[in-house]
Amino acid sequence: MKGTDSSHEGTSFTRRDFIKSVGIGGGLVLFGQFGVNAAAWALSGDPVLKMVLVDYTKCTGCRTCETACSARNRPVSINGRDLPGLGNPRFANIRVHSFNPDVDVPNVCAMCADTPCVNTCPVKPDPKTGRRALYRDQATHAITNDPGRCLGCRSCAKACAAQRRGVITPNPTTGKPERMCTLCGGDPQCVKRCPFGALSYVEVRRDRKFYGLGPEKIAAELAKGWYGTAEFGGMK
């Protein structure tokens, strides 16, 4: 069973999309998007990883998750003590993409086992830790950047956008990657604060149909089912 989960629910992806987006050979196409990732998982040593999973039928687009994420991950210091910030959504690591017709797609790090973002980092692995500038923290499992070693080359963001969800955003000034989910030390605030129960914190393998897809593709797929349309606003 491990690494060959084929219980995907039929994405509309073409073979070429798969090869282009995942870069792994043709035989794996049969597994679908998640199957490909599951295989990549196996090749990556089958780590047990957890992620923030979205139930798109329950998301209402209220963006409370953005504010909860930002409050936690952008704390403010008051009298030398870190307190949750005011939740400016611009600094959230989860972002709800809203479209016309109404489809809301929260976009958050997919916790890819094969880490295309890390693989593309041009900084030489540290001989002691084996880490590039971008690495997966072994304790938290979060993709983490070492700003001291990071060149600001943006290749991680490009890899994420081209191959997965496009979550990683380069800082406009320094080019260094931002918006990687921290999982809030194992208690993701977005999950905790969602008023509609649309988010859950589960093992990555439970994400099937939409695993690793960008918000536009997910929105298009959902709109077909909900509204019978492929005509969209906000796709750019």
Binding site: T60, G61, C62, W226, G228
Partner: peptide
């Protein structure tokens, strides 16, 4: 209705869309 829609930070979601 196929979807409940909320405004910014609203836990009520009184808006509805459908076909």
């Amino acid at each position: 209705w196929v979807k409940d829609i909320a405004c910014y930070c609203c836990p009520l979601a009184c808006k509805k869309s459908g076909t």
